[in-house]
Amino acid sequence: MKIGIRFKMRQKRGANAQTLHYLYCTIRVDGVQCSPFTTSIATTKSSWDSKRQLIKGYDEKVRLQNEQLNQIRDDIMGLYNDCRKQGKHVTPDKLKSLYVDKEQFTPQTLLAYYTKYVEQEKMGRCRSSTITIWKTRYNKVKEYITQELKVKDIGLSEITPKFLTRLRNYLTTKAKRKYSQTSATYMIQTIRAVLDYAVIEEVLPYNPTSSLKLIYSPKKPMKYLSEHEVQALSNYQGYKKGVKVVVDMFLIQCYTGMAYNELIALNKSNIVNNGGIDMIVIYRGKTLEICKIPLLAPAKVLLEKYNYKLPKVRNDRMNKLIKKAAKQAELERWSIITTHVGRKTCGCYLLNAGVRMEVVSAILGHKSIKTTERYYVELLTSSVSNELKRTGLI
């Protein structure tokens, strides 16, 4: 495949020796030529050297104009070489479109495709906090590439299981802010998602990192409150007004499984009646997917108390006050309680009540039932044992 890039002067009619004429660029690939496009560079007829493809002269203006012409040629050649590397069919019109219309063309590098993936696949589909997490991970990958590998970026074809293993080791042992094994694994999953996107874009034939085994930190016991602890928190009468509000909000989480951001955004319009059953209809904060939660009687009583419009309490303040309340109610494990513990408590409450796993998964808004199983497997084991003991089978 042969490519030619040449500049031609388009002369004006009735021009004199001092008239400036614009230079136009043409691209030819294997004998096929695109229509000329302007370079926005103008000079006189006598100053243009068509054979040498440059403007004659030695002053500063001429030097800058010739540098511009060389830059145009280099930029087009760079686009041509990138297309060839990606195995794409190259035409002069395609190159012209890439250069003139600034058609998006992404270099085959990790950081470039990471940015493209976030902008095209994540923006508008994920909440801002999720985008922030992706951008934070981008900065950490960039830190590894620039400070550890001493390069500006790395080609997609260079991302191998070995590269990810070294990145994982860097994150867990060398980085200024060291990551846990699980956090490092999330980073690797992020890069894998970018490579999967590159496969969809037909930049890579396959994802070369699929064989790498993911490593997670030892699983921590799940934190949740027992039914007895929830009742103790609910029945205590000595709370001050501000603390009582937070207790009510936390209890609503225990009965609905709503996350903090979903809880404070709730209003009466989220309550719909479906077949005689009141349901909370919300968009899950993480997935932005619609979710329907049956409104249990204890939650309904609490929501009606506030006319379905809960006060705005910052998450950090709510966590502080719910610990204070639990301590006043003499819960031994008061220090473990956070708003997220309320969400986990809901899952446990429903499973212990005999609600099927797939129903609990839907109420909690998990994308996959495997997520629910992973978090609640210990509880299920305990529930099975207790049930078998209750029936006298063991």
Rank of each mutant, 00 (worst) to 15 (best):
V100A: 04
D101I: 07
D101W: 05
K102Q: 11
K102C: 05
K102S: 13
E103L: 11
E103W: 01
E103S: 09
E103P: 05
Q104E: 15
Q104R: 15
Q104A: 13
F105Y: 08
F105K: 04
F105L: 10
T106S: 11
T106E: 09
P107F: 08
P107T: 07
Q108A: 14
Q108V: 12
Q108Y: 11
Q108P: 09
T109A: 06
T109C: 06
L110A: 01
L111V: 07
L111I: 14
A112H: 02
Y113K: 08
Y114K: 09
Y114G: 04
Y114V: 04
Y114I: 09
Y114D: 05
Y114R: 01
T115P: 03
K116M: 05
K116I: 03
Y117R: 10
V118T: 02
V118P: 06
V118D: 00
E119I: 04
E119F: 00
E119Y: 03
Q120Y: 01
Q120I: 08
E121H: 06
K122M: 12
K122N: 03
M123Q: 12
M123S: 13
G124Y: 03
R125I: 08
R125P: 00
R125L: 13
C126V: 12
C126F: 08
C126N: 04
R127I: 00
R127Y: 09
S128Q: 14
S128G: 01
S129L: 10
S129D: 05
S129A: 11
T130I: 10
I131A: 01
I131M: 12
I131Y: 04
I131R: 06
I131N: 03
I131E: 07
T132W: 04
I133M: 01
I133E: 04
I133W: 01
I133S: 09
W134E: 10
W134K: 00
W134N: 07
K135A: 05
K135D: 14
K135W: 09
T136E: 02
R137M: 11
R137Y: 12
R137V: 02
Y138H: 05
Y138K: 03
Y138R: 03
N139E: 15
N139W: 06
N139M: 07
N139Y: 12
N139I: 10
N139Q: 14
K140C: 07
K140R: 15
K140A: 10
V141R: 02
V141F: 08
V141K: 03
K142E: 15
K142Y: 06
K142H: 07
E143A: 11
E143Y: 11
E143H: 11
Y144V: 01
Y144C: 05
I145K: 05
I145S: 06
I145F: 01
I145Y: 01
T146Q: 15
T146N: 14
T146F: 03
T146D: 06
Q147W: 03
Q147F: 10
Q147T: 13
E148S: 12
E148K: 12
E148A: 00
L149V: 08
L149K: 12
L149Y: 04
L149S: 00
K150L: 11
K150V: 08
K150F: 15
V151C: 13
V151R: 12
V151D: 08
V151N: 08
V151L: 00
K152Q: 09
D153L: 03
D153C: 00
D153V: 05
I154P: 06
I154C: 00
G155D: 09
G155T: 02
G155A: 10
G155E: 10
G155M: 01
G155R: 13
